[in-house]
Amino acid sequence: MNLVIIGLNHCSAPVAVRERVAFPRAQLGAATCELLSAAPVTEVAILSTCNRVEIYALAAAAGQAALALRRYLHSYHKLTEPIDVHLYERHNRDCIAHLLNVVCGLDSMVLGETEILGQVKDAYAAAQTAGATGAALNRLFQKAFAAAKHIRSTTAITRGSTSVANVAVELAEKIFRDLTQSTVMVIGTGAMSEATAKALRSRGAGSILVCGRDRERSGALAGQLGGRAIHYDDWPVEFPKVDIVISATASPHPIVTREKLIPLMKERHQRPLFLIDIGVPRDIETACDELENVYVYNMDDMQQIAKENLAAREREITICRELIAERVARLAEWLEERYK
């Protein structure tokens, strides 16, 4: 018996191809059942995310099974043009290594991201519920999850945020005791400030105030974030209640200055204040950072942190690969022993 995988990901196929072969989550179970009868495989699981579609299978004849899986992918999605050029195929030891790399986030677009582990768990659960897994795939997936857990805790592959928005969230979590008690103010509505506010909201930020010159736009963003829109001229009035400020205006001069902040900090009893300056030219005067309990971070600071975090993750790849290689060898041995 052989383990086989057929798939494509963000490296092998553009999004236009990936979106055509993606399996809706609700149809994963039915598709796995269908595959069991459509292809010469005894066990099968389908992983479908925005960045990858992969079919894992156990078959007596690897070549035949791979061919059938390719045909199934084309027929299921009613593809008019062949996508074989985008597909990769791995067998046995390489298949095991591939899955372990995937669950550990080594094969992800954002190196070391952790969301993929949950997605693989969902794919496995769907296949298991559909009765499409057996001894081989059960062992393969369970060992892969254990490996991911071990690698996450013993290496720095998942440590530190690699996007500017998440770096802002990470910093906010090291300033404030509880983000749910924090109020965020977004001054100026741009893509970056929106992404940062969304990231803070997803981590439980209490309330969000959106303030912009364009009332319609700030109202729409406030609606998306579940916050409240305020008029641009009113931001100084609301400012003392705010803990985190994301500023991204097109103002040619700093809108938050040291002189303005000193009385405001008194008013807020010197509670910590996190100022995220995304504006170019900068919206927050550099001297504000000299004030106690005021933390000012601009785009360059956060990009630098994200870059350093990514570099730190990249340095961990070798260690992760070594840990994975040990587990691949053990799993491959078990597979050979069981199906010899």
């Binding site: 720095a156 979590e173 090291k174």
Partner: peptide, 11 residues
């Protein structure tokens, strides 16, 4: 990286 190991300043 030490900063990730320590709690929030407010806490």
């Amino acid at each position: 990286p030490t900063f990730r190991l320590l709690p929030a300043v407010e806490q």
